[in-house]
Nucleic acid binder design. Structure first.
Lengths: 192, 192, 192, 192
DNA sequence: AATGAATGAGCTTTCATTCAT
DNA sequence: TATGAATGAAAGCTCATTCAT
């Protein structure tokens, strides 16, 4: 089995799913884009669903690792949150197709939402939740905000904005600037 | 034309789309739930897409009107923003199906996202943008945050949280409390 | 729903299954032969399997009824067995496609063999078994032959011969004569 | 060419065809069971059909030879027919998979039925036909039964019963006893 | 000869949409 | 207007067969 072929299929699927949406995307087209025959897809993935699930599972792992590595350089909760936001936007900029896919399709079905919140996605979000909780216990952040509310606010805000940014033609704002504004608001908002 | 039949179809579509997602939803099932024959659906709506579009267009109108009416009672930008958030969550609580549909399907296809940002949805978001801009011009809010960033932050945060809340079985937080925490963070974050 | 359409589909399926075999037969071709669109088939039958099962279930019923009616005219076990054989061959002559289908496809899969032996098919075979057992209790037939062996011998013999006869181009024997020969052998063979 | 590999493939095919039926059987699975790669199958057999045909042709040869050898020990037509039946059942008991395959798949397609009746299968059946004809010319058997009808009756009866016996879980009768009953009926039935 | 990954034609089934009644 | 049976295009998936190694 050819690992590069699997990888090519995964990348092609990201592109086609991002462009057409999961349901409108055709397996045949993914295969063609990957430069293989339709049937080959099924040697590497159980079915179309498995292709989407594999993207979620496998593409998120390096992102989380990279994000974790980036956060580990910082001691202070504030810096960790700022860095999380900055890194998220950097990721969006570098992988617009994957980002769009995660943003749009992750919501698509209750099934996915419920299955995956508990796994990789939760792990990602928890990076913010933990930083915030630590900030609270260090007396830096206000106590009347629940960490799980805060982490969802952060994610909701950056997710919404990056979706918009990716889809907008003009890209009149720089993601970096946007990230700073978001960090500013959210951190000013929770600082004691 | 039987307006009540159209309305029943719209309500049925909200339910079925919310439960099954737009693509998995069957027109036949929507018709059955509305108590009409399959073909009747096509007397009131051009096609399945039109059904979704009509939900976006028509169901949002009363929501926006209601939200506007609620906001008009308040002078201060801060109160307007707080009220917007509270009213949004109240709407989510009262129309969970519609809310879920807007949350999930509005992102579904680039097509919809691009077509509808400019219309009803934009109008809704702008209620926050305008309140924020007014707050800035009154010298209440910091200048280094762009209104369109702020309004998207607000929407992203409340949208993310209400999706989660609707889908979660436990509903361990009260939406009212969540709304207050969000308002607290975001307003503290932008106050001068 | 149009009962005649269902009937046409059933008849078409008998023809196509008999000609091509269940697995090689295409649903599209059955539909075309029935004069309907492919999808219409699925309004009347759950799937391709259901089409085959329905043939077994529904087409056998009138045959069994007719056979029973024919047998009921006769008192003597011998005559009942002779009549059974004669009527079976008459049926084969009148419904060669159905006969071939039953002969060939009924054996096809263990699944069918096991599922259907217990139902209609068993009922059919039992007509012979019962006549034979009655003959034994009346002291007409030898005791050292088990009724279930005898009934299977009868069926095996006539089934084998009718399959051959249906498939042979020449049809050099008349089925009526064949039937008489078989009756002669089997009844002479069991008479005390 | 590795004769043992060919043989292993043939044996594996018998098992898989018998279990799953020709059409549902997968070449890959046959190869796996034979301990070779999928592609290797095509070095020894032209295609899937050829695998089935080869079973018919090659596996029948030793059976026929053995049956012939068994029959040659007996002078009398009666004994030859009794022995044929007994040997057939012994073969069924020893090679249940092959027997089932012959019973079920030989009927499967008109194509096979027509192509193979003339060859090995016919040769097998003719052993009975010849014994019967000889019995007739010796004045032992009645003249009003055509040998080809008789041989088909014999085969139909034993084939039907052995299929049933192989598929039945309980095996409440012994094949040996069944064979005797069949011989009794058929010979009593044709004796002058 | 042997391998087993790759191929792609082919089939079943679904379902949005149409249309005769 | 209303119906719901009928349509048929469309797509996911399988698997016999091929072929580069």
């Amino acid at each position: 089995m050819d690992a590069s072929k699997r990888e090519r299929l995964l990348k092609a699927a990201i592109k086609v799913f991002a462009r057409d949406g999961f349901f409108k995307a055709k397996v045949e087209e993914i295969a063609k884009l990957a430069g293989v025959a339709t049937g080959t897809t099924y040697l590497y993935f159980k079915n179309k669903d498995d292709l989407l699930i594999s993207i979620f599972e496998e593409e998120m792992t390096p992102i989380i690792e990279k994000t974790k590595a980036g956060l580990s350089k910082h001691e202070s909760p504030e810096e960790r949150i700022t860095t999380f936001i900055a890194q998220h936007f950097a990721m969006v900029e570098q992988n617009p197709d994957l980002a769009l896919l995660l943003e749009v399709e992750l919501r698509q079905s209750n099934k996915f939402l419920h299955e995956y919140k508990g796994t990789k996605f939760k792990e990602y979000l928890d990076l913010v939740g933990e930083a915030f909780a630590e900030g609270q216990s260090k007396g830096l952040f206000r106590e009347d905000i629940h960490p799980s509310i805060f982490k969802q606010m952060v994610f909701g805000a950056i997710d919404q904005i990056s979706t918009n940014w990716t889809l907008s033609k003009t890209k009149k704002f720089k993601l970096k600037d946007i990230g700073q504004q978001i960090s500013t608001v959210l951190l000013s908002g929770v600082r004691k």
